[in-house]
Amino acid sequence: MEKSKILLGLALTGVLAITLIAADHIDAPAVAGGKSDVTDFYAFQGANTNNMVFVANVQGLISPTASATASFDENVMVEFNIDNDGDFEEDLVIQAIPRNGKMYFFGPVAPGTVGTSSTVKTENALGSVDITSYGSTALVASQNGASMFAGLRDDPFFFDFGQYSEIIAGNATSFNNPGNDTFAGSNVMSIVVELPKSLLGGSGALNTWVETKKK
């Protein structure tokens, strides 16, 4: 689940107004083409079944010819939210913030407040990883029981936008099999963190969502 709302919160340098914006591919005019645009969110059990994996992709439709210059925005924090008691409010957050070629991770930790404000939890550092550049082997860091990655990846989303448009226009009634992948060859900036389930609290199902928060 991805959310859109307005935030007022705290950041590394003090009290700041933060706008939270999140969306799917190319469907949010306020963030279209921006570095805070959420394209995909995944949460799943790891190959090690004791672990959970969280993945957030931002900046959809990055052209391969421009990928060498693609990067994360240092004014944008990506926050994974975890509800472990079923009340649909975040009990824990994992925060990812880029600085000087690295992605820094904080949490999982209880948020300062829920819903309308955000505090960067610098006292709860999980670790950091060098951001993987275009065409390079993935750089993965393992610290404090967690594994982390941040960098450019091929867009995993498959969608035949042309046929979708034909259906909406009334010129077709169904998708083709297999169809044409509109997003083939385009890239996203991806953030991945894998960590033990024991750090997430609760004993049942988790509700999770991701937000981007911009200074």
Rank of each mutant, 00 (worst) to 15 (best):
Ala70Thr: 05
Pro98His: 09
Asn124Ile: 03
Asp73Ile: 11
Asp85Leu: 02
Val78Ala: 11
Ser117Asp: 06
Val93Cys: 01
Lys121Glu: 15
Asn100His: 12
Ile62His: 01
Ala125Met: 09
Gln45Ser: 13
Asp91Met: 01
Asn51Asp: 15
Val78Phe: 03
Asp85Gly: 05
Gly135Asp: 05
Asn51Glu: 14
Pro111Gln: 04
Pro111Ala: 04
Glu123Tyr: 06
Val55Cys: 09
Ala47Gly: 02
Lys121Leu: 15
Thr65Asp: 10
Gly112Met: 10
Phe72Arg: 09
Ser128Asp: 11
Ile82Gly: 06
Glu74Gly: 14
Asn48Phe: 00
Gly60Leu: 05
Glu123Leu: 14
Thr113Phe: 12
Phe106Val: 01
Lys102Pro: 00
Gly101Ile: 08
Gly34Cys: 07
Val109Gly: 02
Leu61Ser: 13
Gln45Ile: 03
Glu90Pro: 00
Ile82Glu: 03
Asn81Trp: 00
Ala47Ile: 04
Lys102Leu: 12
Thr65Met: 07
Leu61Lys: 06
Val114Cys: 03
Asn48Arg: 01
Ile131Tyr: 12
Phe88Met: 14
Gly107Val: 07
Ser118Trp: 13
Ser67Cys: 12
Val31Asp: 09
Lys121Gly: 10
Phe80Ala: 02
Thr69Met: 10
Gly60His: 04
Glu74Cys: 08
Asp40Asn: 13
Ala22Ser: 15
Thr69Arg: 08
Asn84Arg: 01
Asp40Ile: 07
His25Met: 09
Asp73Gln: 11
Ala56Ser: 11
Ser133Lys: 15
Glu89Ile: 08
Phe105Ala: 01
Gly34Trp: 01
Ala47Lys: 06
Val93Pro: 00
Thr69Ser: 15
Ala70Val: 05
Gly107Cys: 12
Gly101Pro: 04
Phe44Trp: 02
Gln95Thr: 07
Glu79Tyr: 01
Phe44Leu: 08
Ala30Phe: 03
Pro98Thr: 06
Ala125Lys: 13
Ala66Lys: 11
Phe80Asp: 03
Glu79Thr: 14
His25Asn: 10
Asp85Tyr: 03
Gly46Met: 07
Asn48Leu: 04
Gln95Lys: 02
Val53Leu: 08
Glu90Lys: 04
Ala43Asp: 02
Val114Tyr: 02
Val93Met: 02
Ala28Thr: 13
Pro29Ile: 13
Ala43Phe: 10
Asn50Phe: 00
Pro29Ala: 10
Phe80Pro: 00
Ala110Phe: 07
Asp83Trp: 06
Tyr134Gly: 03
Val114Ala: 09
Gly135Asn: 09
Ile131Leu: 13
Asn51Ser: 05
Ala110Cys: 07
Lys102Ala: 08
Ala23Gly: 14
Phe88Gly: 08
Ala68Cys: 01
Asp130Asn: 15
Ser71Val: 06
Leu92Tyr: 08
Phe88Gln: 14
Asn57Ala: 11
Gln45Leu: 08
Ala32Gly: 08
Glu89Val: 10
Ile131Arg: 10
Thr39Trp: 05
Val58Ala: 05
Leu126Cys: 02
Val38Gln: 11
His25Thr: 07
Lys121Asp: 15
Ala28Lys: 09
Asp37Ile: 01
Met103Asn: 04
Asp73Thr: 11
Val58Asp: 00
Ser36Ala: 13
Phe41Val: 13
Ile26Gly: 07
Ala138His: 06
Ala32Pro: 00
Pro29Asp: 04
Phe41His: 05
Thr122Ile: 12
Asn75Ser: 15
Tyr42Asn: 05
Val120Ile: 15
Ser36Arg: 08
Thr116Cys: 03
Ser63Met: 03
Tyr42Phe: 14
Gly101Met: 06
Val120Phe: 06
